Computed example of a mutant assay.
Amino acid sequence: MRGDCAHCFGLCCVALPFTASADFAADKPAGTPCGNLREDSRCGIHDRLRGSGYTGCTVYDCFGAGQKVSQVTFGGRDWRRDPAAAREMFAAFPVVRQLHELLRHLTEVLRLAPARALRPEVREVLAETERMTLLTPAELAALDVAAHRARVGALLLRAGELARADVPGRKRDHRGADLMGARLRGADLRGALLRGAYLIAADLRGADLRQADLLGADLRDTRLHGADLTGALFLTEPQLTAAHGDAATKLPAGLPRPSHWPDTLTPPPAPSPQPRRGRPRDSGRPRRGRPHRP
């Protein structure tokens, strides 16, 4: 379930669209090669994506769909050499990518001891999903991916509930919650349900997120310095890469620390200055300062 760019024809750099924003330096329509894609299907600025305005690329993962479509679905045919297959290839890639993401989460469920009662059902759905990834381009185009995602999502929810059942105390339900910029430093979110929650730029420094369900949570620019994510459920590398952490951030087993995270501890913020006694001499003047950042 890991991307292998050496056996892919740069499909994520061609098939998918992106819009000029904080994540991408330029617009690109679907089916058009990115200007940074080389003839050998490798990225020309891979080692400096963040500094070049392509942070969005650094937080993307095809979960192995790129090489599956390139080498299995299309038998190693490069879209450059076989333009007739290009349109079908670009349409198949996003579908297989969704299926591979589901495979990744279903595989995780098989490792959850509390959800062992679900393993026969999970194995059945896992095998069915794998068969879907081997469909022909025409069959992939006709596949109802949304319906299958809903079915798998319900199964993952049951597995998550079993995995979080032994967490003591109150387990907060923040499914789909708007927590952008929320001040949750040091919060007790152990076993919390944070599926699809918007945690963009939220302050989760030192928070307890052990066994929290983070399926689909948006962690862009989330501050996870010193947070404990041990045993967090359905957390992926792209989510972590989109966030900020440090050497004190505890991660689930098997998830590597993002390369842009510092290997040192993040120093605590400087204490706020003590207010003066008495009325300040310039109390009638408006003060200039930096805008508040969550």
Rank of each mutant, 00 (worst) to 15 (best):
R257I: 04
L112I: 04
K171L: 03
A84G: 14
S41N: 11
H100K: 10
D82Y: 15
T133R: 09
E108N: 03
L37R: 11
A115F: 10
T129Y: 04
V69E: 02
Q71Y: 03
G245C: 12
V122T: 01
L49G: 07
V109K: 06
P120D: 06
A6E: 14
L118P: 02
A141H: 02
L219Q: 10
D213H: 12
G35H: 10
R158D: 01
G186W: 08
R279N: 08
D47M: 08
E39R: 09
D166G: 09
H244K: 09
G44I: 03
S52P: 11
T236N: 04
L193P: 00
G289F: 06
S21G: 02
D221M: 05
L157Q: 13
D144H: 10
L251D: 05
L112E: 12
D61C: 09
K171S: 01
L157A: 14
Q67S: 15
V122Q: 00
P267D: 06
P280G: 06
G75L: 13
A113S: 12
L255Y: 00
G51I: 07
A243T: 03
K171E: 00
F74S: 13
L103I: 12
G31H: 14
S259G: 10
R116E: 11
V96C: 08
V59E: 12
L204A: 04
L184D: 00
P120F: 07
D263W: 03
R164K: 02
P267N: 02
R210C: 07
E237F: 00
